[in-house]
Amino acid sequence: MKRYRYLLLSIAILVLAYFSIEVKALDEVNQSRAATFDPKAYARDFLDKKLAPVLPQAIDLPELLSKLSQNKDETFEKYSHAVSIGNLRNFLVQGEGKVTEIQENEVLIALNNTEPAQVVHLATEFIYGNSIRDAAGLFDIKNFSNSNDINSIAAEINRIIRSEVIPPFRKQVKLGDRVQFIGALELNQARLNVRQLEILPIQLSLK
């Protein structure tokens, strides 16, 4: 009788142990925390309904460079935006120029109305980060309490640009073409370097 009791007890302990332990892969632990927020829908809506109407208001890049050389801090204060606190700030800029070089990951453009011509790097591969999301100052972090959502929106906006804006441009662009662009420019306010400007495109057109 005692033997049966021990057997039953052992089975009960094993069953309890089995159901109380769950083995998961490390990244599954993180994925399971994901909320139901739809970043794809939000990003699409943000680009089409919020960002698109203000694109024509982007500051002319040569004008921005001139203002930065005259009064850096005031220009940052007036034209730059960022969700994060710190030195990295983003500008919504537009410009026009001539294609001087086509590389694997970017297209180099000699900017109009700059003397000597300022070369800007139009990114066509590495379109990542918060720059496009933040450049116009339309993204309000107070509407979000989940960091994953905030990051997913930027990632999704960049994915849309990489898949919809870049391929047709890369297909057509040739040396010597004239390009009109509207895009996002990230600059470090404390360590300002305007020698190598990288623009993440939002809208591109060839003339």
Partner: peptide
């Protein structure tokens, strides 16, 4: 106070 305040990483 904002609940989350991100500080940029360089």
């Amino acid at each position: 106070f904002a609940q989350k305040i991100p500080v940029a990483v360089e």
